[in-house]
Nucleic acid binder design. Structure first.
Length: 487
RNA sequence: GGCCCAUUGGUCAAGCGGUCUAAGACACCGCCCUUUCACGGCGGUAACAUGGGUUCGAAUCCCAUAUGGGUCACCA
């Protein structure tokens, strides 16, 4: 078997999409599984829409996800440059060769003429394709057209009566009839090659062994194979991965919600959770365990286990996975990730003192069970940053209106005021003593205290809540509740 | 519309002719844990698109139909 060389070749025309990330991931997993090479190349032949900014975004997202590449843009390698607009000279060579051999020709049709042809075909229900008007122009005709000021495009002469077959590594045997493919453009009138042409030259000159990409490229494959054949090159293996769909089962796009990787990053999703989720979308591990560290995915990955049918993006499952990683990752890491969100909410200001950091860590440890993503920490932490407690409507107010409540709160306030700095065990002890002294049992003491301190009837462990609030915080909130009662 | 691809529970999916009275995960429901909630544990509801073949036997193979998707650019 040839050495495995795969590539991810995004066009830098917008934010880095979920679908692109999955393609990159599958290529990466494939390369790592077989000890091959993972290459990143930039396909920026669309001069209008390509920007360096989105190229940067994509590369950053790739790095954030942990998908490092061995060769390509920024890291270099023997087959560079890795940006298509920097390889124009190379494409020109092959264009000339095809022109010389008659496998390509110049076409002078205007966009208007092409559009008219297209509409006619569409109206007749035929396959839309170029009918070959300029196929057999003589040099004299070309010169005349050019004298008119028409700038030609270069089209590939598609052989008639030819069927392209290939064995797709995920879809199996696929075939296309060339009769349905018109002579397609390989070089635009501005001299820039089109995707279908450049991709073949790049993949070949970079010795790509397997082209793993999204299914939307399936119908481009016969065109590309035609070019490989015309140039006498060996055709690589293809693997077309099915698309990611939105809830309505159409190709996932912005209207389905967050589709850019950086949006998930900004909401506080962990890269490994996203990677794990993306891997599960269209691929299934052999065993029953679905929460998999990267290394295990590398070991288990194979194209044979990649699904042929499209997958609906399920945010609930991503949330579950991410929550899972939030709960099981080292506390310090989660704390560090949570800090920017707390800062942005105005709850803390940086830099943190050692003591304050430890305090934030306690807080994070307390609320992380509740989180789908780090962004949500602000809503769960809010109650610790404002001594003016807003009491929930309904049940919470009823609880606070209980007959024994003032006595309980006052007794606790006294205990906390006179006691040492609050700790989890200290709080627990005080609560117990208050209960004993007043002859009040369980719920009647815990619930009013919880409501007085947090405003809610539900929430994390009360002892730890008290420890985090600290002596002052607890006292202020108890006072406030007592005053509220007396009014 | 032409061409291409797909079709197992609400979602992701295992299954590659008998071991399928069809796994697992998310979601949902119930129970347990917890003087709350969440986490966690245990259990439950829920699926082979339809119709024809092939075969002793089909979720698995073939053909239609239906449904969904992709693609038909001087975009990639």
């Amino acid at each position: 078997m040839l050495p495995v060389r795969v590539r991810f070749a995004p066009s830098p025309t917008g934010p880095f999409h979920i679908g692109g990330a999955r393609s990159a991931l599958f290529n990466w997993l494939f390369a790592r599984h077989y000890g091959g090479t993972f290459i990143v190349r930039i396909e920026d032949t669309d001069l209008e829409r390509s920007t360096r900014e989105s190229e940067e975004n994509i590369l950053n997202a790739l790095r954030w996800l942990g998908l490092n590449w061995d060769e390509g843009i920024e890291v270099g390698g023997p087959n560079g440059p890795y940006r298509q607009t920097e390889r124009l000279e190379l494409y020109r060579r092959y264009t000339d060769a095809l022109l010389k051999s008659g496998q390509a020709y110049r076409c002078y049709c205007t966009e208007e003429e092409l559009a008219a042809e297209r509409e006619e075909q569409l109206a007749k229900g035929e396959m839309v394709r170029y009918m070959g008007r300029c196929r057999d122009l003589s040099p004299e005709q070309c010169a005349a057209l050019e004298a008119e000021g028409r700038k030609p495009v270069i089209r590939f002469r598609v052989p008639e009566d030819h069927v392209i077959r290939f064995n797709d590594l995920v879809r199996g045997e696929v075939s296309f009839d060339c009769g349905g493919i018109g002579d397609f453009i390989i070089v635009k009138s501005d001299g820039i090659p089109t995707y279908n042409f450049a991709v073949v030259i790049d993949d070949h000159t970079m010795s790509i062994s397997h082209v793993i990409r999204a299914e939307e490229h399936l119908s481009n494959t016969p065109r590309q194979i035609l070019i490989y054949e015309a140039l006498g090159w060996q055709v690589p293996e293809f693997a077309h991965v099915s698309l990611i769909l939105g809830q309505d089962r159409s190709k996932m796009s912005k209207r389905h919600g967050a589709t850019a990787i950086e949006q998930y990053q900004a909401k506080g999703y962990l890269p490994e959770a996203l990677v794990n989720f993306l891997a599960l979308l269209g691929w299934s591990p052999g065993g029953e365990e679905e929460v998999l560290p990267l290394q295990q995915m590398v070991e288990q990955f194979s194209l044979e286990r990649v699904s042929k049918s499209p997958a609906v993006f399920d945010l609930e499952k991503l949330n579950w996975l991410n929550g899972n990683y939030i709960r099981t990752s080292p506390l310090e890491r989660i704390t560090d990730m949570a800090i920017p969100f707390l800062e942005k909410a105005g709850y803390i200001s940086l830099p943190l003192t050692e003591k304050k950091y430890e305090w934030v860590k306690m807080l994070v440890a307390l609320v992380r069970d509740y989180l789908n993503c780090l962004e949500e920490i602000t809503e769960h932490a809010a109650v610790f940053f404002d001594d003016k407690v807003a009491i929930d409507e309904g049940e919470a107010r009823e609880i606070l209106a209980g007959e024994k409540v003032p006595a309980v709160l006052k007794a606790l306030k006294t205990k906390v005021t006179t006691g040492p700095a609050l700790t989890e065990t200290g709080a627990k002890r005080m609560l117990k003593e208050v209960g004993k002294e007043l002859g009040v049992k369980g719920k009647e003491i815990f619930m009013p205290v919880r409501v007085a301190l947090t405003g809610h009837t539900h929430g994390p462990d009360l002892n730890r809540v008290m420890a985090i609030l600290g002596q002052d915080g607890v006292v202020r909130r108890l006072e406030q509740a007592i005053i509220g009662r007396e009014k």
